[in-house]
């Protein structure tokens, strides 16, 4: 186990530092991304978006977050209290572990595990439990429907996602994110375009982003699994969604776009440029497409993405063995 973690004499101090850094990043990143999302959507819709608070409305989301924090946390009477209360934590906690695995530059990673990729995919699967706890614990039919949809969707899309990642692992013979990124003398998207597309579509579905935002389809399910949440509990789901976007895009950057590699600019800047570039694409998706229907979404995963990913995997194996 290597990484920045080793710089600290005491593992507890290292853990505290990592958690602090990650928490700080999550907050700042979410504030920025929400602002960006509002600006992007506004520009696409011939509006201005936030302009009042701070330069270009940059501080608007900060004001919104303060408002959310200041709100009373309402717990409806009819909820299953333990599940209801723990759900936002369950959704949020895995993100801390996830972000500390992501290398943002040569050697800039908190924990450089040999099996970081497996850990990352496993932890990102955990947030389904939180979402389901939220939907079930809310004791509300709309929330339950949203939760059921979320579970079905996340489990379905995890499979093509994994199948799209495996060719890269086969090519580099490594599960370490750091090594995979280092191994790319050219971005792997050039040799694995199909895997990238499958990964990116599945990742959009994994993060419950439109056009796959079926668990929280506002026109049918009001707000889906977080219907009954208010204040910062709702804020936790919101933060988690935006942090998840960063994580899936960071993994895409590392696996397919060469991580921090790029000419002229420093590595970390390249890394973030690529990550936020991908996030911008996701945002454009959201504001362009209508929502799929639930059964169409499942058909798309099982009848199109999974076979495609399998074919791609087989081709990769054949080419590698030749």
């Amino acid at each position: 186990m290597t990484g920045l973690f080793q710089l600290f004499p005491n593992p507890w101090i290292g853990l505290a530092a990592a958690t602090g850094a990650v928490m700080g990043f999550i907050t700042v990143n979410a504030l920025f991304l929400i602002w960006l999302e509002r600006k992007v959507s506004a520009r696409m819709q011939r509006r201005y978006g936030p302009t009042e608070v701070g330069p270009f409305g940059l501080l608007q989301t900060l004001a919104d977050m303060l408002k959310l924090i200041g709100k009373e946390l309402i717990t409806p009477d009819h909820v299953h209290r333990p599940l209801y209360l723990i759900a936002p934590v369950l959704v949020f906690a895995p993100l801390l572990a996830l972000l500390s695995l992501v290398p943002i530059n040569e050697g800039w990673v908190f924990h450089d595990f040999d099996i970081a990729l497996v850990l990352l995919l496993a932890f990102s699967g955990l947030n389904v439990i939180g979402i389901f706890a939220a939907g079930w614990g809310s004791n509300n039919k709309y929330a339950l429907l949203g939760a059921v949809r979320a579970v079905a969707q996340n489990i379905s899309y995890e499979i093509p996602l994994l199948l799209a990642v495996i060719p890269i692992v086969l090519m580099t013979r490594s599960l370490s994110l750091h090594e995979i990124a280092s191994a790319q003398s050219y971005p792997f998207i050039l040799v694995q375009p199909l895997a990238f597309i499958i990964y990116f579509i599945s990742a959009t579905a994994e993060t419950n982003r439109a056009p796959f935002d079926i668990p929280e389809a506002e026109s049918e399910l009001i707000a889906g699994f977080h219907t009954e949440y208010s204040g910062m509990r709702f804020g936790a789901f919101f933060l988690a969604e935006f942090t998840n976007m960063v994580i899936v895009c960071a993994v895409a950057t590392i696996l397919f776009l060469g991580g921090w590699k790029g000419p002229l600019l420093p590595g970390w800047l390249w890394f973030f440029l690529k990550v936020y570039g991908l996030i911008l694409v996701m945002m454009v998706f959201r504001w362009t497409f209508p929502r799929l229907r639930f059964d169409q979404l499942m058909t798309f995963a099982w009848a199109i993405l999974v076979p495609l990913a399998l074919v791609n995997l087989l081709l990769t194996i054949v080419v590698l063995k030749l």
């Binding site: 959507s41 819709q45 935002d213 026109s219 209508p290 929502r291």
Partner: peptide
Amino acid sequence: YLLDLGGITAFLYAFD
């Protein structure tokens, strides 16, 4: 209608 289907942008175009 587009809003019902989850497409928000067309809604604002139409309202404009």
